[in-house]
Amino acid sequence: MKSMKKVVGPEYNLSEKIKTNVYAVGVAMQESVYPHTMTVFYPRERKKMPDNYRGFILFDPDKCISCFNCSFVCPANAIRMKEAPNKRYYPTVDYGRCIFCHFCIDSCSGGALKATKIHDVAYKDMDEMFTPTEEMIELPEIIREDKKYVEYEIEEDDLHLKRTKGEDYLFVEVPPPIQIPMVSQCIDRANCIGCRVCEEMCESGAISSSVENGMLRMKIDTDKCTGCGLCVKECSMQILMLKKLERK
């Protein structure tokens, strides 16, 4: 049988031991006089978060096309679509489930969801963590006590704190997503069973049906279609597809 290899610690001789000990004590003394303290005195000062920090999610209902992308993509099942008084569906986020992956923001086709650097929101209980759409439009109330913000800097393999007076801006200004205009198209007309799910689904009323010669005929109005893809997802025969809009 092959014997197991024994792991042994490094061996030091006496002079090396003395050297390392003296070095350690020296560093401790140096640091206790001129410390490189890393502590951030929150809330008197805040750490400056990077621009791609994933924090609280803001929502702009005007840009939302109710495509359900966010709720489909959410790996934690935190987003539920709720019907608003204007009969459209808007997302709500349950922060008790959210893992702050921001997939929803990345997948938002209308650019309606926006990331912020806010990470210090307090809730009294789990139920309160369920955030309805109305509360996502406005920022949560924050009491800003910070007079400085702190950045970590790496200098010659050493970490330093850099303090700057002033408040850190908590929003992330991202350019609006480059939208490739898409339209829904039927790729296999022969297989349409005329269930009219797509017509019911469409938020913008782009799909209409008419009866011609006793046959049901579906029509997609390219001008009205927002390219949200809802009909594509719901089509029972899977014959709808999003295609790049080619304007003539």
């Binding site: 560093v27 401790a28 640091e31 410390p35 303290t37 502590t39 005195f41």
Partner: peptide, 13 residues
């Protein structure tokens, strides 16, 4: 306080 400073913390504050 001293140990905190040596270890990049602040200690009682």
């Amino acid at each position: 306080k001293l140990c905190g400073r040596a270890q990049w913390r602040v200690g009682p504050h």
